[in-house]
């Protein structure tokens, strides 16, 4: 069952088009990784999905009765937050705000949900600690717990392991996979770590300036775009052909010749 369907969407950043005619579908329970080089429009696309930026063409359809207040979001941290005086509990609880409407105070159920999500991510003992004094990995878990307070359906994660050490980032990937498999939460993650993306996600959307890829991870590893970034031991006809193409440097020589360059 599709949860988000993007039909021929185009978006721009500061008036410059970053991608156009992009179509893909996210089904309930999927784990989609959006990868691509800097400037390929990953973050812009994510802001579009979150409704923070308008699309300039096409449409994004939220099906399955997905309301705006049922999306959980893990943003990249800003500098201001790093020295913000707030306890872990205060931060996690603020994720329940979108369930409150105009009601002024948090209910017992909100507090229980916040505590439950902290326990789920193993940060219950940090409850009264100051957010800014935590390590990077702990801070990400706090923000993930907050995102879980906002949703039980869809999590959108923006570069969740940036700045984490290898141990903390593999732990973060493990937590996200567990949420996807055990709690059937749909995951959309923006990342530039293609290798980790292929390891964990079941669908890949690769944004590249002139050729985009959308499909399952399996198809991606055999695609030409995927094979540029992944080392693997597959010897199927397709992969062999891609490898031969990548090793063939004749187009470079002909380019250099036609431009009068080269070292001859």
């Amino acid at each position: 069952m599709s949860i988000i369907e993007c039909k021929n969407i185009s978006m721009s950043y500061d008036g410059v088009a970053v991608f156009d005619n992009l179509s893909f579908t996210v089904n309930s329970g999927d784990y989609l990784c959006i990868v691509g080089e800097n400037g390929s429009g990953k973050s812009t696309l994510m802001k579009g999905l979150l409704g923070l930026k308008p699309v300039t063409g096409g449409e994004i359809i939220y099906s399955d009765g997905l309301k705006k207040n049922e999306i959980g979001y893990l943003p990249q941290q800003s500098g201001a937050q790093r020295d913000f005086p707030a306890s872990v509990y205060e931060v996690v609880l603020s994720g329940r705000l979108n369930k409150r409407g105009l009601l002024p105070f948090y209910s017992h159920a909100d507090r229980q949900a916040a505590l439950g999500n902290m326990e789920r991510l193993g940060i219950l003992e940090l409850k009264n600690r100051c957010y800014k004094e935590l390590s990077g990995g702990q801070q990400q878990r706090v923000l993930l717990a907050r995102a879980l307070c906002a949703t039980s359906k869809l999590l959108i994660l923006d570069e969740p392991v940036t700045g984490l050490d290898p141990l903390a980032s593999s732990e973060m990937y493990r937590l996200i996979s567990a949420l996807n498999k055990e709690s059937s939460i749909t995951i959309i993650m923006v990342s530039h770590d293609i290798v980790a993306a292929v390891d964990h996600a079941d669908h890949i959307l690769h944004l590249s300036n002139n050729e985009d890829f959308f499909g399952t991870t399996e198809d991606y590893t055999h695609s030409e775009l995927g094979s540029r970034f992944l080392y693997h031991n597959c010897h199927c006809d397709g992969c062999e052909a891609h490898a031969a193409f990548h090793h063939d440097q004749s187009h470079i020589h002909s380019y250099l010749k036609s431009n009068g360059g080269g070292r001859e």
Binding site: L50, G51, K68, A86, L97
Partner: peptide
């Protein structure tokens, strides 16, 4: 201020998150 205390906290701490989750 008292009635909107929790909203003011959320918007102060992380405006992007608040916006994205429908606040």
């Amino acid at each position: 201020f008292v009635l909107f205390y929790s909203k003011i906290f959320a918007v102060t701490f992380d405006e992007g998150f608040a916006k994205a989750t429908g606040v």
